[in-house]
Amino acid sequence: MFTIITMRDYLPKIIGSESFQEFIGPYRGYDPTVNPSAANVFATAAFRFGHGTVSPILPRLNESFQEHERFCHLRMHATFFSPWRIVNEGGIEPILRGMIGSAASVASSKMLVAEEVTERLILMNSVERMDLASMNMQRGRDHGLPGYNDWRKFCGLRRVRTLKDLAEVVGDYRVAEKVLNIYKHVDNIDVWLGGLLESLLPGARTGPLFACLIGKQMKMIRDGDRFWWSAEGIFTQQQKNELLQFSLSRLICDNSDVGEVLPDSFQRGTYPCDYVSCDHIPSMNLEAWREKRLDLQQCAYPGTIKNGDFVLSTTSGKLVALYSCSHGFKLKGSAAIVCEGGRWNGQPPQCTDKV
């Protein structure tokens, strides 16, 4: 459910529909040659674009999606490590309504990150206030990330060579001038800062560099995952159809007392005309996952393997055991055996040392 919400509903709005098609595209099945692990630049810089979308205000709204009459909006720093506010101040519902009923913040070249997290960020066990932007750039240097220009080249984008080039990318000459005065040379610019400075792509919340880095990473996460939800043999077609019914709006309805939501909670709407009752938000029918006991009675449970495990699935109406190895071990033999004619059509594989 999480991967469906992320890929289908979230990412196209973050990197834009055109970038989504260019870097991710339609799913064509599991590719064993793809490494799905998180790239250093993605984890350390690109996916931290979200720090530029942190709002300085946490809005709290009532059931009519207006400012709450009892619980006012909060400055972000007043919410750090303060779960008591949820317990004592109306529960999670005013916060959820504030999140889906208010416009999201967006970074601009003149205000990349809210002062609530650059001047008033609080960390556990620290008496000093921290600067999230500085931490991000220092983290990139600690991880040995190449600079902004090197990653533009990696993504096939034109390198920034002059102040004029930087001003075109940023969309603001004075900001570009200030950045270059600080860094002295365009090749010195940190990738997190450079990516955040870029003008947003149409229909996106990132510029071209972060759209590229995020898109490439998400494609690898999807294509290199042998158990991706829509891969062959993981779920039946009926189960896939039910999974596609799920949404962030349904999640909010199922886990809170919020009674009205937007059909797509990532898209802002106007109350009440764009909102619908939770009764009209599609939900999954778990009957699609009812196990077929007859197959298990015919074949019993498949054999276990050392340093690995298996999951049961169905393909074309047949029970399938899909094996995988623990980290550090390599699968030897067929990864799948099928229940046919009252017996498994093969022996379980082995998990051997990679070396």
Rank of each mutant, 00 (worst) to 15 (best):
I281G: 12
R343G: 02
M284D: 12
L312C: 05
P302M: 12
D309S: 11
C339G: 01
T270W: 11
S316C: 07
D295I: 05
S326L: 14
C325A: 13
N307T: 14
G308H: 15
V276I: 10
E291C: 00
R290N: 00
H327G: 06
I281V: 15
Y323E: 12
P349K: 08
A335R: 15
L312Q: 07
S324Y: 05
G317Q: 11
D309I: 03
E287M: 01
V276W: 04
P302C: 12
C278Q: 00
Q298H: 10
I337H: 01
K306M: 11
C299I: 06
E287N: 04
G341D: 08
R290K: 00
L296Q: 09
L312N: 08
T304R: 10
C325P: 15
W344C: 04
V320Q: 06
T315K: 10
L319M: 12
L319D: 10
C339D: 06
R293E: 03
G333V: 09
T270A: 14
N285P: 13
C299R: 08
C273W: 01
W289T: 01
N307C: 11
L294A: 13
G346K: 00
S313K: 00
L312F: 06
L294N: 09
V338M: 03
E291V: 02
R343L: 08
G317Y: 07
K318V: 05
R293S: 07
G303E: 13
K306C: 09
P282H: 12
V311Q: 04
N345F: 03
Q298C: 05
A335D: 13
L322M: 04
F310K: 09
V276Y: 03
L294T: 12
V276T: 12
K292D: 03
L319F: 02
D309M: 09
P272W: 01
S277V: 03
T270F: 07
Y301G: 02
D274H: 08
S277K: 03
G308S: 15
C278Y: 01
L319I: 03
H327T: 07
K332V: 09
D295W: 08
P348Y: 02
L331P: 03
L312G: 03
G328K: 06
Q297H: 12
V311L: 07
A288T: 04
V320L: 02
G328D: 01
K306S: 14
G341L: 08
D274L: 05
K330S: 11
V338E: 13
G342L: 00
M284N: 11
A288N: 00
D309W: 13
L286A: 01
G341R: 08
E287K: 02
C325L: 15
C273A: 07
S324Q: 14
S334Y: 10
V320E: 02
P348D: 13
L322R: 05
A336R: 13
F310T: 07
A321R: 05
P272E: 06
P349Y: 07
K330P: 04
A288F: 04
C278H: 02
V276M: 11
I305T: 13
